[in-house]
Every structure is written in C-alpha cells, then in structure tokens.
Design a binder for these strands. Structure first.
Lengths: 118, 118
DNA sequence: CGGCATCCCTTGGGATACTG
DNA sequence: CAGTATCCCAAGGGATGCCG
C-alpha cells in the first residue's frame, strides 16, 4: 500500500474490475443491510442492531468500523450519560443508493414471480 | 417449507425485505462474479474458472449448482470426449443485469474519486 | 475436461461477561 | 448504552488426488 488517500485507500489496491471494487466495499451481507437501514437517515447503535435483526453487536461494531474506515459511514459520539452514538451515511455512502435500489427492485419483482408460481 | 415452486423456492421462505431477498440469491461474492462473467454469454467451466480468477473448482462447482437450483444459471452437458460443459444465464438470471450494472457504475465512479485523491 | 471426495485450515460470526 | 475482550463453533473455501 503506497500513496494513501484520505480514505486510507490507494488506487493500486483496487481490482481492475469495477464490480469487484464495489464488492470490496459492500461485498458482505451485513454491510448491505447497514446501508439499507441508514439510507433513510441517522440511527443509534441499538436501533441499528434491532432493525438489521439477527446480527450480534460484536459483528455490527466491526462492520461499522470497517465502513467508517472506508468512508461510507460516519460516527457521532455524544458526551452523555448514558452514552449515545449515532451512525449516518457519508455523502459517499449515499452514492450507493442506486445499487440498493436496484437490489430492492429486483427482490420485489422476484417475489412477485415466485408468488405467481413461476 | 411448503408448497414449493418449480424453482424449489417457497414464498414463505423469502425475507419480508426485498433487499434481503436479493441477498439470499446473490449475497455471495462468487455468485456476483459468476453473474458478471456469464452476462455477456455462454462460458465453459474452465473459462469461467479462469475469468473469475482466484476461485477453486470446488467452490465454483458448488456455486454453479446453487445458482442452477435457484434458477439463475443453466447447465448444458455435451456428450463429447473430452467432456464439455457450458454454463449460461437463464432469463431470470439475466434480469439481474440492472443490479450488476449499478454495481459496475458505482465501482467506476468510486475509482475515479480515489484516483482524484478524494 | 469437469467434476467428486477428502482433508484441513482460516475466517466469520455467535454467546457471554465485563467496563466507561 | 455502546462498546471491548474472550471463548468457541460452524461454515467457507483452498489443495490434492482420483474418476468418467
């Protein structure tokens, strides 16, 4: 890794194929679901854990850290008792909306197909 | 699992969220890459293994079987010596093109971003 | 060539307990 | 509440060898 950018990503580390590049950032199921749940707006850690469903807090924490390092997610800590931490998408993270939308549309169409018995 | 369809998928098994439904079918890195490489057209097993890159034939075989069971991929065996097996997308598989396109476009834009040092 | 079968290892990821 | 720290397990996935 040479010549790091602000995001900690150097261009040479990225695969030649754009699709693989995307997979590097959101190739994991949990990452996609975090994206989906933050797309509408800011959420607290606990809310996120609940809305994703079935994720342990250890994994959620690690995924959020990765996505933060990749510049997709922002973390805001409030100096309160009890502590409050809010997560939101960065502008870069929000640019992934078309991908999420495509997935949502396909899933919807697919379910109609299945329901129709095809 | 009750009332199975021709694809072996029953509607009740699908998550309520369309995005999760899509993830069930192509939530894996390899599955996305198989899709990408079959999108242009038919490929033989060996070609696929090469073009995907970094996948073992055991994993490729298992992923192709899964995708075949899900109705995304078709398998054509030719009775020749040496044997030839060709894989192609089904009409259903081809409907995933918008998702792949969205990922490709995002990856391209992201790499420009990184190259520009942002 | 295109598989299975087998062995084996790394990793993702869950559960629990503890802390600021 | 939002973590960190352990422990532990199951699954993903690589390598090799054999077969039709």
């Amino acid at each position: 890794m040479t010549e790091k950018t602000a995001l900690g990503v150097s261009p040479q580390d990225l695969p030649a194929c754009p699709v693989e590049t995307t997979l590097k950032l959101i190739g994991n199921k949990w990452e996609v679901l975090v994206l989906r749940d933050l797309m509408p707006g800011t959420k607290r850690f606990g809310e996120l854990k609940q809305s994703i469903g079935g994720i342990s807090q250890k994994v959620l924490t690690s995924k959020l850290r990765e996505m933060e390092a990749d510049g997709l997610v922002e973390r805001h800590v409030f100096a309160e008792v009890p502590p409050r931490v809010e997560y939101s998408l960065t502008p870069l993270g929000r640019t992934l909306k078309p991908v999420l939308d495509a997935m949502e549309q396909w899933g919807t169409a697919y379910k109609k197909r299945i329901a129709a018995g095809r």
